[in-house]
Design a protein around this nucleic acid. Structure first.
Length: 471
DNA sequence: TATTTAATAT
DNA sequence: CATATTAAAT
């Protein structure tokens, strides 16, 4: 716990990374962009509906809104125009921009509903991580996020939602499950977060939430192992919900630090997104249906997600170390989700976003192919992950040991088997996978292919060979 | 009082 | 659902 005042210098960039000033690092952030919540329609401007969906015009029934918060006021003032558009295009512009309005007199401004884009959520989670469970209160979170247009209330609201989700997940999980796997799977299936370990909080949204925490690390960590585990793609079973996992991951931040790439995200802030660095290509986020739609899909149409195995996660993750760590910046992540199909709700999407793991750019490719092959199955794509950069996570360990859940971590496990150098093996594995999944897989099952399950097993086996692995 | 949080409303 | 608002609790 270090945290004392954690916040201090820490900032989170758009990418959700937490930046800590000193230490060297690279900062990659560009902070320039502002992230703001995107609001749906612009108030000021008007609403154009053009945009899209959201603009609802309900009517406002009245405009009531007393704005109390300063923040709110600010927001209002600024009023930007945002429309919710989908991002895809990005940017958008506004073509529409101006029109509209009705005049209702009144100022009719209503502020558009804010949208918690993945990026924002990332920041949010990053802030949570940095703050730690205990400290994460709306106000502090807001500060850390350092995003211009959000209000405390909004943060509070989002926090509320977040907490609820976490809890829900927690409940869901079957705790008793024997192996972690099973539980994981459960979670996965549902898209929920993995159960936290014992510490409830952790699960909750704490930092811990994040995924891997290395707990050992500096101080902050404790991460929720459980969560941690999740990152691993185990899922095989039915779902492909890896995203969920991602969630976690995204969440997690603490601990490790390495700098990674800063990724960014875009937000759709005012009407446009700010960009994110990375989103680049893929940018596909698919939001789920419900989402606000941002969906970009990949070109190919790959739908499934790919996620990469573990490593990937790590690298991207952001780790925040509030005070301690050295690395100043956490990377954000890029997240790309593959496209999720239709139905993601925010949860999912958040998750996904969070995860964000990959940076690599593209790997989509295979996905395509594979995807279709597998149909539902997803593939894991081992990416190369950026691992290079950062440090490698050294530790995930915690979980492992701890609980049983560890399993889940399969991935982690993977690496972990030897806790020492997870990477090595891990890397190897990854490489193998990358190169030729099939080959890699020892067993017949080819990991790469999509089933997480298989993958897990495969991993397990592999690992077992080498070391002990509980499973 | 300022915040946070739970409960509701939209 | 997700976000906003209100009411109550701290």
């Amino acid at each position: 716990m270090n945290s004392g005042k954690d916040c201090q210098g820490i900032k989170i960039n758009e990418a959700g990374d937490v930046l800590r000033p000193p230490l060297g690092g690279v900062k990659s952030n560009e902070a320039g962009g502002e992230c703001s919540l995107a609001t749906g329609h612009a108030l000021d401007i008007d609403k154009q509906n053009t945009c899209t969906l959201t603009c609802k015009a309900h009517g406002a029934s009245g405009i009531k809104r007393p704005i109390d918060d300063k923040e709110e006021q600010e927001e209002v003032k600024k009023s930007k125009v945002n429309t919710e558009q989908t991002v895809s295009e990005s940017i958008n512009k506004n073509e529409e921009g101006t029109e509209n309005r009705d005049s209702n007199g009144t100022t009719g401004d209503k502020k558009p509903r804010a949208v918690w884009t993945p990026e924002l959520h990332l920041k949010f989670t990053a802030a949570l991580s940095a703050l730690g469970d205990l400290k994460s209160r709306p106000k502090a979170i807001l500060k850390l996020m350092n995003v211009p247009n959000i209000t405390v209330r909004q943060v509070a609201s989002h926090l509320q939602k977040y907490k609820n989700q976490v809890q829900r997940i927690r409940e869901t999980d079957t705790t008793s499950l024997p192996s972690s796997l099973s539980r994981l799977s459960n979670c996965i299936n549902r898209n929920e977060f993995p159960p936290a370990k014992q510490s409830s909080l952790v699960c909750q949204y704490d930092q811990r939430t994040s995924s891997f925490g290395v707990r050992g690390n500096t101080a902050q960590l404790d991460a929720p192992n459980s969560l941690i585990t999740s990152p691993i793609p185990v899922a095989g079973f039915n779902n492909h919900d890896y995203r969920r996992q991602n969630l976690y991951s995204g969440l997690s931040h603490y601990t490790i630090h390495h700098t990674n790439n800063p990724s960014e995200f875009y937000l759709r802030a005012q009407g446009q997104f700010q960009n994110l660095n990375q989103i680049r290509e893929t940018s596909s986020f698919g939001y789920g249906a419900g989402m606000n739609e941002i969906m970009n899909q990949q070109p190919l149409g790959i739908e499934e997600n790919r996620f990469r195995t573990s490593e990937s996660h790590f690298p991207n993750m952001n780790y925040i170390t509030p005070e301690a760590a050295a690395s100043p910046y956490i990377s954000g992540n890029t997240f790309r989700f593959p496209n999720e199909p239709p139905v993601m709700n925010q949860e999912q999407y958040y998750t996904s976003s969070l995860t964000g793991p990959f940076d690599s750019q593209n790997q989509n490719q295979f996905s395509t192919e594979v995807a279709r092959l597998t149909t539902e199955v997803l593939e894991l794509v081992p990416e190369q992950i950026a691992s290079g950069n950062a440090t490698k996570p050294n530790k995930f360990p915690a979980d492992f040991n701890d609980g049983s859940q560890k399993l889940d971590t399969t991935a982690g496990e993977a690496s972990s088997p030897n806790k020492n150098q997870p990477l090595s093996e891990y890397d190897e594995l990854l490489k193998l996978l990358e190169e030729d999944p099939q080959e890699a897989s020892c067993v017949g099952s080819v990991p790469n292919a999509g089933d997480a399950d298989r993958y897990c097993e495969w991993l397990r086996e592999t690992l077992l060979e080498n070391s002990t692995d509980p499973l």
